[in-house]
Simulated assay, not measured.
Amino acid sequence: MAQSPSIVPQSAASHDVYIVLEDFGGRLGRAWSETAEEDGNRSTLLGHLIEGHYFRPARIVAFNTTEGWSRDVTAIIADELRRRYDELEDMAPSTLEFLARAARH
């Protein structure tokens, strides 16, 4: 029996991918933010969070299909953003709210 080809993009298969669950509130609820393949890396995610590209980030998940794992990295990313805030002292209001929510969990 022939195996089906993988649907995982080859460029994504060799590194960790980060996606953001956003809380749009009310009737809209939560949804995973659409992310271009080349923007799924950690450094781009951090930059987008700092700049306020997300409305209300609720959770961040990382996965690596080659290694076969996925995990909630919300607290890890929040800790890294807190360290960067000490250096930058300028961060989007949505990210500051995210840091406050992450500290409570």
Rank of each mutant, 00 (worst) to 15 (best):
R82I: 01
D90F: 14
Y85L: 15
M1W: 08
I7H: 05
R27Y: 09
N41T: 15
F55C: 10
S4C: 05
R27C: 06
R59A: 11
R82L: 04
E37H: 10
L21Y: 01
R27G: 13
D90W: 09
E51D: 11
L88C: 00
D23C: 06
R82P: 00
M1E: 11
H15M: 10
R71E: 12
E87M: 08
V8S: 07
G25N: 13
E80F: 03
Y54Q: 08
I50E: 04
I19G: 06
F24A: 08
H48F: 14
E80H: 09
G52P: 07
L46D: 01
A58S: 15
A92W: 03
I60S: 06
I7M: 09
E97L: 12
T35I: 09
T66I: 00
A31L: 12
R82S: 01
I50M: 08
A2Y: 10
W32H: 04
G68V: 03
T74Q: 02
D16L: 03
W32K: 09
G29W: 03
D86Q: 11
L99G: 02
Q3N: 13
W69F: 14
V61D: 02
E38H: 13
Y54T: 08
H53R: 15
E87T: 11
A102F: 00
A100T: 08
Q10W: 05
A13S: 12
A13W: 05
W69M: 06
A31G: 13
L28F: 06
P93K: 07
R42A: 06
M91N: 05
D16A: 13
E67R: 15
A102Q: 01
L99H: 00
P93L: 05
F63H: 09
L81Q: 02
R104D: 14
L45F: 11
F24T: 02
T74G: 04
Q10Y: 04
Y18K: 06
G40I: 00
L49D: 07
A2T: 13
D86C: 05
E89V: 08
Q10A: 14
R83L: 12
P5E: 12
E89W: 05
A92K: 04
R84P: 00
H48L: 14
P9W: 07
R104I: 02
Y54V: 10
I60G: 04
E89K: 15
I50D: 00
F98R: 07
A102V: 00
L96N: 00
E34N: 06
T66F: 04
D16T: 10
G29P: 03
S94A: 14
D79Q: 07
F55W: 08
S94H: 01
M91Y: 06
F55I: 09
T65M: 10
L49M: 15
L81K: 02
G29D: 06
I50P: 01
